[in-house]
Amino acid sequence: MTATDTMAGAPAPATATAPLLEVRDLHVEFHTRDGVARAVNGVNYSVNAGETLAVLGESGSGKSVTAQAIMGILDMPPGRIPQGEILFQGQDMLKMSAEARRKIRGRKIAMIFQDALSSLNPVLSVGYQLGEMFRVHQGLSRKAAKARSIELMDRVRIPGARARVNDYPHQFSGGMRQRIMIAMALALEPDLIIADEPTTALDVTVQAQVMDLLAELQRESTMGLILITHDLGVVADVADKIAVMYAGRIVENAPVHEIYRQPAHPYTKGLLQSIPRVDRKGQELYAIKGLPPNLLHVPAGCAFNPRCPMAQDVCRTDVPPLHTVGAGRGSACHFWKETLGD
């Protein structure tokens, strides 16, 4: 944990204890025909080596856009980063040349995407796509790259790796395909992996297997992991800390167990209440009323106010700063004390 949990985010010097990745006051906007969509509005978060940060939020909360900005794979234009810093190992990646960023991608920061079927190239064998990492970044020969690909497939426990290395993505099951995506991200032993909803497209049983695999692979190394998800159930076991995003801002961040025990933001509270529970079987499932805001017309004040059961006048006028709630905890709610209280 670092001391940058406030919105102001006083820049910490890049020392040996500096986080692996630190996002400071990041803004991302998209220029569309209908106006400027502000997808990310001043996000701060950090990940240390060996740590797992879960970024939680609904579709359109800006969690994936933040990740794409870190990876440097945003489409620009229409995307634009008007403000902010993304410090990786102490260096601002937004100030690097395109070539320097390319060399970080895949080698130092890797990404696992949501839908492995569409994210893998349909006309190239998985062995080729895995081997490409070694051939491009390490200059290995085709043959050596293939041998490494087989090792990788073994490592993510794909049965019969040697026989299947020349198969194509459509010949694998959903869970196996996601393992291939994970293997691809692991290939060059990056310092940081960003997993963007890695289990959303999978069956529940397969979801658990894939999450266990990710957690286990991370335990074996010092790599940092950013896990982007909208599924609170998934994060409890793997994450060290959680950042909850809403309308392009972080509304709450906290160590994982505290947030489950005692949320400090009404939105987080709503999310936790909407998890189906066996002991409430038969009762109506709780849902946060209303819809996530249109990013072209984000409500004034706290973006969550139209859906918030606790909203007061101040919520409709003033954007709440990220209040420090406790050690390594913050909540962007004017009434965080009241939220914690009840």
Binding site: R102, R105, A110, S119, N121, P122, V136, H137, M184
Partner: peptide, 12 residues
């Protein structure tokens, strides 16, 4: 998506 993956892999 697979083109985005290729970019994310750090390919030239």
């Amino acid at each position: 998506d697979y083109v985005r993956t290729a970019v994310a892999k750090g390919l030239p």
